[in-house]
Nucleic acid binder design. Sequence first.
RNA 1: GACUCAGUAGCUCAGCUGGUAGAGCAACGCCCUUUUAAGGCGUGGGUCCAGGGUUCGAAUCCCUGCUGAGUCACCA
Length: 573
Amino acid sequence: MSTLELSEQEIIRRKSLEELNKLGINAYPAAQYKTTHLSTEIKQEFDPEKDNMKEVVIAGRIMSRRIMGKASFAELQDAEGRIQIYLNRDDMCPGEDKTLYNTVFKKLLDMGDIIGVKGFVFQTQMGETTLHVQELTVLSKSLKPLPIVKEKDGKTYDAFTDPEMRYRQRYVDLIVNPQVKEVFEKRRTIIRTMREMFDNAGYLEVETPILQPIPGGASARPFITHHNALDIPLYMRIANELYLKRLIVGGFDGVYEFAKDFRNEGMDRTHNPEFTVMEIYVAYKDYKWMMEFTETMLEKVALALHGKTTVTIGDKEIDFKAPYRRLTMIDAIKEHTGIDINGMNEEQLFKVCDELHIEVDETFGKGKLIDEIFGEKCEGHMIQPTFITDYPVEMSPLCKKHRDNPELTERFELMVNGKELCNAYTELNDPIDQLERFQEQMKLSEKGDDEAMFIDMDFVRALEYGMPPTSGMGIGIDRLTMFMTGQDSIQDVLFFPQMRPEKKVQPDSDEKFAELGIAPEWIEVIRAIGFSKVDALKETKHTKIFQDICGYNKKNKLGLKNPSQDEVKAWLA
RNA sequence: GACUCAGUAGCUCAGCUGGUAGAGCAACGCCCUUUUAAGGCGUGGGUCCAGGGUUCGAAUCCCUGCUGAGUCACCA
């Protein structure tokens, strides 16, 4: 990168780096740096009465500096937090040579640099536990200045909040906004709590294909890719359901997977193209059992995170204490619209949608119509955790028919804060019924529903060998994390949410400028005054370019010999 | 995909009905040995997102585009 494209502060930092090298200091040393403590450990263990920490070594990033002549305070941030360090010229440099303090620390180090320090711990007059530095090692020089965030009594000054920069440069966000780390630590706790529960129950954690020849297990548009050696299309999975059920056929009594799924659909506050789902399948159980299992699981997760079952989301308090309300889909619709859709045919349902002013189109089947009514009129009202049960058979092609009503299926979704969180079935294990349901989906697909499921004949074949009665459940981990941590955007629970790629104007090469007869030393200057393209340069008056580059030369004290006006004119000819 | 809002110094933001850009922090220089968001004094720092248009003159008004956020639509 040419220095002319850098900001003033970046240039200064690069110069400091050179100065360090000249002093024989490697700003990027290779050797391991052995620390004895983390910042939090020092704060916990230090007892000023006993003066019990005479030699500690820590490493971290300089986050603030207060220099007062021969002594300075700085804050070092490590993986756990921040600790203040105290640097005194004559303690760091006991001999005649004061370079390490005067030059290295005061002049050549900056906020953002990573250093290691060795010394003893004491308490300042202000009562703050502080490390008195006796040795300092440069571990990594930072060439880009960090945003400066300051905080006092919980009030934050100059917070780094621009969402675009926070998500694109998550590393900066993590350095500067400590609360962000907490969200991801909680995410880990959520997953760990669930995994422990499943493992204790004896279920097996498994991995199944992400690249699938038939994208099954859900209704969604997949990403398509291509395998060169096989010369076939492959789909990124939209669900892992069919593979996990094959494993139940194979003889495992309980399997689960924390899986990345991919759906080629719109993005918004609750949808990212890739997202994490946990699916679990347990043999010899039904969806009633699974409801109890699910509410127990969520109660455990809430307790592990907060020590209580209630969680605050926005202005609402949500209680994850089991048991949760159970409500059939038909009853939910009755409750929120006053209409009993029980036993209605497709035509009648179209009429209901019309009365309720719900937009539909003729490709919709019975199941999708009911789903629309529910989604439009009921879903948003389910704030406290509520199991919605017994979905119409048309919208649940992988789910067993209801034991009391063949129009319905043994399915539940868990609604929280007006959003779907879990989806579960008594799994369909009748191979003949399963094939028919797949064929129904084919008809929907022919009708124009581009999300209807594909037929997976191998899955049907697996069922033909016999799958024990099984219940399965899927839960969106991102959404769960949002609920449990009070974040209202999925981008805040993913380290690297999908973003449009950054676009940079691709500048013309040096060669292209050189072809015009421009001397190498002037090419950078021409870029610096705003011309990255040869074409743009050619369309500009030579007098303006002449003035701009001479002005730039003078202003930045480059010491170049200015070209004549005619020379500049010749470049553009 | 539609609409609304936003994009100005490394960061957070001002900038009125058009008159060639300001503050705080950060940086740089000097002075300061237990300070704590911010010590004192001084200095520098900008392709005002990009490209067009209107105008004597555009950060400001108009159009197009790019990026992000929000609302809706689509979607589990």
